[in-house]
């Protein structure tokens, strides 16, 4: 249980990346997001970002000395994650400012930079876990999984927010369904590679399959996929309720998955 803060931190940070990129993209491509809505969503990013930072500090024995964690930037992916994630949040703040100022060109320009830094942050985050000491983590799956979480949760979050505000009814399912499909394929590939790997990897797979959360994750994943499929085929289903429900279910699903990621990690 002691990794719970990390579950929350990684999920939130990935959600933020996906969410930010989605908002920026919609804002840039389609426009039509009111200042108020854009600002609200942007502020919600900042709140979530703040929470994620606080929670991640909870994981430290010495939260007050968390600032030192950037000292080893030259070597440590953890330092890098913190630096880039910090920068990412800073840029979100700046972009929020330009929502407030209603300065679309500036916030779009910042969007480029923020998205790039955010991607580097999540990349660094994934690299932290790609260590030989824990075979179940030491694969590109970790990288895929982290970015897929971004792609699944972020856009859906923004879509749900927009739907609440009735700003614009984006057909987000069109983007998410392929991602869900890719996710499923990656997962199948991942578990078969675990089973073909080191004994510790096999053990991790065994523990995962034996865990009730795994089956709950699959069920929620399928449920969310079902909802999104419905909303894809029928615009009536592109409602606040459906998007919120799909988001909530998918958030649960990803969190369960992430929990298992930590819980079943067998050390060499």
């Amino acid at each position: 249980m002691h990794d719970l803060p990390l579950v929350i931190f990684t999920i939130l940070s990935q959600l933020l990346l996906g969410g930010f990129v989605a908002l920026w993209w919609i804002d840039r491509k389609k426009g039509g997001i009111s200042k108020k809505t854009g600002l609200l969503i942007s502020i919600s990013f900042l709140v979530l970002g703040g929470i994620s930072l606080l929670v991640s500090m909870l994981h430290l024995g010495q939260p007050l000395h968390a600032y030192r964690a950037i000292l080893n930037f030259g070597v440590s992916w953890l330092s890098r994650e913190i630096v880039f994630y910090g920068a990412f949040l800073g840029l979100i703040a700046l972009s929020t400012w330009f929502w407030y100022k209603d300065d679309a060109p500036k916030r779009r320009a910042i969007g480029w930079m923020a998205s790039f830094i955010g991607v580097v942050a999540i990349f660094s985050s994934a690299k932290i876990y790609m260590i030989p000491a824990i075979p179940a983590w030491d694969s590109v799956n970790t990288l895929f999984a982290f970015f897929l979480t971004s792609l699944l949760l972020g856009p859906l979050y923004v879509a749900a927010c927009l739907a609440i505000k009735r700003d614009s009814a984006v057909n987000i399912s069109g983007i998410i369904i392929p991602v869900l499909f890719v996710s499923a394929i990656v997962a199948v590939g991942y578990f078969s590679s675990l089973n073909a790997g080191l004994p510790e990897a096999v053990e991790a797979a065994k523990l995962t399959f034996g865990h009730v959360f795994f089956w709950a994750r699959i069920a929620t994943f399928l449920a969310a996929s079902g909802l999104l499929l419905l909303s894809y085929v029928n615009s009536k289903w592109r409602s606040v309720q459906i998007y919120s429900a799909a988001f909530a279910i998918l958030l649960a699903s990803e969190s369960l998955g992430r929990f298992l990621f930590y819980e079943t990690a067998i050390h060499l």
């Binding site: 053990e203 067998i266 050390h267």
Partner: peptide, 8 residues
């Protein structure tokens, strides 16, 4: 360490 984890 599988054996250790496992037996625990």
């Amino acid at each position: 360490m599988i054996t250790e984890n496992f037996s625990r």
